[in-house]
Design a protein around this nucleic acid. Structure first.
Length: 584
DNA sequence: ATCACGCGGGG
DNA sequence: GTGTACGCGTGAT
């Protein structure tokens, strides 16, 4: 048996009679490692209406392992039956059977993807270091590539407290010959693929032999082969594109298909795969984390358009070389213009790299807090990120995770409207000597101080409660609610990090801590909004309503108080206001 | 007023 | 894949 430490990058499972979890990571020397864990099994919970008859019913179905466990359901103690199954793929079938049993009230935690369950139950965090205990094997039918080290685990890994991992980014961008408007991969060929890894810029193309950054090849097929070779040789931790989920990768795939090029870029030798995620498609490369910066930027900043050019300008205040997209083919055909096309492509890949370098640290921190893969985190709405964070916390607190809303419940929720923050329309005119007031983390503070949580909401008369303005919703003072205690943890942790940041002398250390506190701040601030997010498992219109009502009360009260001192409010919104001061 | 539809980014 | 996830503006009805 040997011990190894890797940075956990990616995770999935495959089937070898039983489900086998595969952990993809890199060791200290940046060498790729795949660890196999055969010990984990899926499970769901059944909430019995009557315990013993329910157990009998379940035993009749022939489950190998049934276990009565004590959990909490929104704070209330509850006995549930844990049903351990053989394979994740039997869950959908089994859960229908179990759900319809006479003595089963409902089933819970039946829709948690297997790899996510594994990360949560074993307290593992992607983008963190983990210690592997197992033995190296020469080859495995579950890994069809020869350059990656394979380890059979003897037990699940454990997380090691570690510094932020070093970024190892490869950015890429393709250009296409498109004389008929928007490119069509059935017809229009790829003319170049640009790559940048922070040190070396490279364009794989059939032209441009006089340019030192061009790697000249014979034809399009060879462009794709060289691209595949580059990725397989370096096995980068992060491969980054801009709109690459919807454009570059589907295009590359189609062209590779037509030309007979194998895109077996996965560490296990698997082909790249497009996975449908509702309305969107994402491309996965097993092991390497493919990140499309477009959806990341949409969540990160608020702009009216999210072109690479616009985003780059916003982040760096610099213009990027732009060419008219519908005329790129003319730049390719015209020898005197062609170099401009190469420069443009290089500009795009450099911009992509720089954006990644700037905003990925935050996403990596969020990954390290939420504990789900970076690939998923960069494609999740913030409400979903919070939800997965809470699902992990629920496991820690022995809380049963609420089910996702049914379609009818979703529809009902959509009709509910929550009144927002107080807004005083700005007074017209130019105001001088403006004073700004604002609350620090108003909503998170209200959630904590008023203990606002679905598990503290009560309609009983005798309990000691905080009573919300307007609606009169009541929240028990004790015990501390699930969500308030977690926001409390986040804010406490943030204060600790801020203090360490102040004490830190190394500027690198300071930067890392700053990103960590920023991630925690974002998470805390999102917590309020999710109560009103219709798909949220802990959705509560009452909580959302109460938070904004208290918010309105406090801002109005503060404005009134300020006016007593001679301030005149010219504009207010939610958690702050601007005022002029009349006296000297 | 209600609903179906299509768009975003990419070349 | 323990699936099948946005949110908004527009034009037609």
């Amino acid at each position: 048996m040997e011990k190894r430490v890797i940075t956990l990058l990616d995770i999935d499972y495959v089937t070898d009679n039983i489900p086998v979890i595969r952990l993809f990571g890199k060791d200290q020397d940046k060498k790729p490692v795949i660890a196999l864990d055969r010990s984990f099994r899926p499970y769901i919970y059944a909430v019995p209406s009557h315990l013993d008859p329910c157990l009998d019913e379940l035993r009749e179905l022939g489950f190998e392992k049934l276990e009565v466990v004590n959990k909490k359901d929104l704070g209330r103690p509850i006995e549930v039956i844990k049903i351990v199954l053989k394979h994740p793929q039997e869950v959908p079938r089994i859960r229908e059977k179990v759900k319809n049993l006479e003595h089963v009230q409902e089933i819970r935690e039946h829709d948690i993807p297997f790899y996510r369950r594994y990360l949560i139950d074993n307290d593992l965090f992607p983008m963190s270091k983990i210690e592997l205990k197992g033995h190296k094997i020469a080859s495995s039918p579950l890994v069809a590539s020869s350059d990656v080290e394979i380890i059979e685990l003897d037990e699940p890994p454990r997380t090691i407290k570690s510094r932020f991992p070093e970024l190892e980014i490869l950015a890429f961008d393709i250009e296409v010959y498109n004389p008929h408007g928007m490119p069509n991969p059935e017809r229009d060929e790829i003319i170049m693929i640009s790559l940048y890894n922070g040190r070396e810029e490279r364009i794989i193309s059939t032209e441009g032999r006089h340019l030192d950054f061009v790697e000249l090849v014979e034809d399009e097929k060879e462009i794709l082969e060289k691209f595949a070779e580059t990725i397989k040789n370096s096995r980068p931790a992060l491969l980054v594109g801009y709109n690459s989920d919807n454009f570059d990768f589907p295009y590359i795939r189609k062209r590779a298909d037509l030309l007979g090029v194998k895109l077996d870029l996965g560490w296990d030798g698997s082909a790249i795969k497009s996975i449908r995620r509702g309305f969107a498609t994402a491309t996965t490369i097993r092991g390497t984390i493919h990140i499309d910066l477009y959806p990341v930027m949409r969540r990160y900043i608020n702009l009216d358009t999210y072109t690479l050019e616009r985003v780059y300008l916003e982040l760096f205040g610099e213009k990027k070389v732009e060419l008219p997209g519908d005329q790129l083919w003319e730049y390719w055909d015209n020898k005197t213009l062609r170099d401009e096309l190469f420069e443009y492509s290089l500009g795009d890949v450099l911009a992509t790299y720089k954006i990644a370098e700037k905003i990925l640290p935050l996403n990596m921190e969020i990954t390290r807090i939420v504990g789900q893969p970076l690939f998923d985190m960069t494609r999740m709405a913030t409400g979903q990120q919070v939800e997965w964070f809470l699902i992990r916390k629920a496991f820690e607190y022995d809380e049963l995770v609420p089910n996702k809303p049914s379609p009818s419940e979703l529809q009902r929720r959509r009709t509910q409207r929550v009144v927002g923050g107080y807004v005083k329309e700005p007074e017209k005119g130019l105001h001088e000597n403006i004073v700004q007031f604002d609350f620090r983390s108003l909503y998170p503070s209200i959630i904590i101080s008023k203990n606002i949580s679905p598990d503290t909401l009560t309609y009983d008369f005798e309990e000691e409660c905080y009573v919300a303005p307007e609606s009169g919703y009541k929240f028990k003072k004790k015990p501390r609610g699930f969500v308030p205690s977690i926001i409390g943890q986040i804010l406490d942790e943030r204060i600790k990090i801020k203090n360490r940041m102040k004490a830190a002398e190394d500027p690198m250390e300071k930067r890392i801590l700053d990103v960590q506190q920023e991630a925690l701040k974002r998470l805390a601030n999102t917590m309020y909004g999710v109560y009103g997010y219709t798909r949220f498992r802990w959705y509560s219109v009452e909580c959302a309503e109460a938070i904004t009502a208290w918010g309105r009360k406090y801002i109005k009260k503060t404005i009134k108080e300020a006016e007593k001192f001679g301030f005149h409010t010219v504009y207010a919104d939610t958690d702050g206001f601007y005022a002029t001061y009349q006296k000297k």
